[in-house]
């Protein structure tokens, strides 16, 4: 028996990733501003973790949510400045930028129509909705984003439980001009079985535009390592035309 003949098959898993993700577009790294990093120490720890994963640039996105995380663009920028300088001192070479993850609630319209809007790469507006029910005004809000001249980027579309008929509903969202940002950890089942099924569906359909880490705490950095060794990670690059590295 010639085992060597079969060896490449087994070794395939260990081949270093052909494509790499340089830019992360979704994370909660700013200290004590939302439910992400609780203090500067944790922020630095998370940044180091992301750097080790091979990222060269992170665009962190704190929550903006009426009555819960009442962040303002100015506040976020101030916090970013502190983080950047602290990171430099800590020897982190990562390029750090900040945008925001807007929650589609009663304050949403006022936020996006304000003069100062936080965008990813200067054009993508990252937003999320309630997980359990689709807001009645969803379509109108998306129209408002487009009208304001931004590209609507839906955060983790695989996590919304109100999406039941995957094919029709995701296609409908795409037709409205919405970009999709899928969480890498969804492929490892970090957000549950349902989110994993939906993430795999989106991957197979080639509907993913951006991949995000959505890092809140250390554990999520650890699980990202596991995703990188999985075959699905390579498939993500094969099936989708990912825009991460264009930023």
């Amino acid at each position: 028996m010639n085992l060597k003949k079969y060896l490449p098959v087994f070794r395939q898993k260990n081949i270093p990733p052909l494509a790499e993700l340089w830019v992360d577009v979704h994370s909660h790294l700013l200290p004590a501003i939302d439910d992400g990093a609780r203090d500067m120490e944790e922020s630095i720890l998370l940044l180091q973790g992301l750097e080790a994963l091979g990222y060269k640039k992170v665009i962190t996105t704190p929550h903006i949510m009426a009555d819960t995380y009442c962040n303002t663009p100015a506040g976020i920028r101030a916090s970013l400045a502190t983080l950047v300088s602290t990171a430099k001192e800590a020897g982190i070479k990562l390029e750090i930028e900040a945008a925001a993850e807007y929650y589609m609630d009663d304050g949403f319209l006022a936020q996006i129509n304000a003069e100062d809007v936080l965008l990813i790469g200067g054009e993508y507006l990252l937003f999320e909705t309630s997980y359990m029910a689709k807001p009645l005004q969803f379509d109108a809000m998306v129209q408002a984003i487009l009208a304001a001249g931004h590209k609507p980027l839906l955060a983790h579309p695989e996590r919304y439980r109100y999406i039941q008929d995957l094919k029709t509903e995701y296609r409908g969202l795409k037709e409205k001009g919405i970009y999709f940002q899928v969480n890498l950890n969804s492929f490892g089942g970090h957000y549950g079985k349902e989110a994993k099924i939906k993430a795999n569906f989106l991957n197979k359909q080639g509907m993913i535009d951006f991949l995000g880490s959505d890092v809140h705490h250390k554990r999520q950095v650890e699980t990202l390592w596991k995703i990188k060794t999985k075959r699905v990670y390579q498939r993500l690059f094969e099936n989708n035309s990912l825009l991460n590295n264009t930023l």
Binding site: T68, D105, D106, S130, Y131, A133, P135, L136, Q137
Partner: peptide
């Protein structure tokens, strides 16, 4: 429980009420 699923569901209700 300001950040609970229940609070989140009322937030959603509030958004919808503003809409209607």
């Amino acid at each position: 429980a300001v950040k609970s699923a229940v609070a989140e569901s009322f937030r959603h209700l509030r958004s919808n009420l503003q809409f209607v």
